[in-house]
């Protein structure tokens, strides 16, 4: 017992002010981390069911669009496989879009939704945009496939992929402009 207290007495003065500050800072960072983690989990928790499904589909397409975009920005090296995977994702998710926006109260007004009522008021235009998106994504897939068989990749071919990609993702903006509610 005596030994123990003497150890403590010895250790406390050793543990200088800077160490204390370090400990305090570390615990503060941990706390902030935990708070951030909890809130981000909550943000995902807010959406559920069909809304969560479609948000995840959009996110997945966005992730692929980002990967392809990074290539054209010179942030990543040019890779035809990524383009092929992106176009597959666009086609697959594009086909599910009409199913992911059913005209139900939950789908219309559920928590976290950014879907505009215009979707159901103008269903024909909404689905026409989705179809356009699928067509253009198929074209992107075809352009990428054609290049995959050719041996050289020159400026013209990358330009072709670029414009096919641009054409496909034009639908993203077109649809968001008319059918997505602005958050914030």
């Amino acid at each position: 017992m005596n030994n123990l207290t003497s150890t403590f007495r010895l250790r406390w003065p050793e543990c200088g002010l800077s160490t204390l500050i370090r400990i305090a800072l570390c615990s503060m960072l941990c706390f902030i981390g935990v708070v951030l983690a909890v809130t981000s989990v909550k943000a995902h928790e807010g959406a559920s069911g069909i809304i969560k499904q479609r948000m995840e589909a959009m996110k997945s397409m966005g992730d692929y669009a980002k990967l392809v975009g990074d290539m054209f920005k010179g942030k990543a090296s040019f890779d035809l496989d990524t383009i092929r995977m992106a176009s597959e994702s666009f086609i697959r998710h594009g086909q599910t879009i009409p199913m992911q926006f059913p005209d139900t109260p939950e789908s219309r007004e559920g928590p976290m939704t950014e879907a505009s009522p215009a979707i159901w008021d103008d269903w024909q235009q909404f689905t026409a945009l989705a179809e356009q998106f699928i067509r253009d994504s198929r074209q992107l897939e075809a352009v990428a496939a054609m290049l995959q068989t050719s041996e050289t990749l020159d400026d013209t071919s990358t330009r072709n992929v670029r414009s096919a990609f641009f054409k496909a993702v034009k639908s993203c903006s077109n649809c968001h402009e008319n059918f997505r509610l602005e958050h914030e």
């Binding site: 980002k66 975009g69 942030k75 993702v169 968001h176």
Partner: peptide, 22 residues
């Protein structure tokens, strides 16, 4: 980065793959 802004102004894509609306 500058390329992100130029790209956004060309096709409306943000650095995280979202697309401009409104």
């Amino acid at each position: 980065i500058a390329e992100d802004i130029a790209f956004y102004l060309e096709i409306g894509m943000t650095p995280d793959g979202d697309f401009a609306g409104a």
